[in-house]
Amino acid sequence: MAEIESRLVNCFATAFPELDPQEIPSVSMGSLASWDSLAGITLLSLIEEEFDISISPDDAAGLVSFELILDYVRRLSSEVAK
């Protein structure tokens, strides 16, 4: 599980290189000005690539913070594991 979090931090760091890695776990669309719709698409594409998953457009609309995305990726990963 910690490995998932660390890989997700890397995705955020690539999409938002200006962020301090320590800030990433608390970041959200509302708190980060550069997280606009284009950056959001890039971030989700990076996550799809990193975790080899497909995020549906319905799910994508709710993925607006690091915490929510971490829960989502963990859930998908455990479903795949089952």
Partner: peptide
Amino acid sequence: MKLAEALKVVQS
């Protein structure tokens, strides 16, 4: 090339 790598190349 993967997207993550491409972004890092562009940023560098």
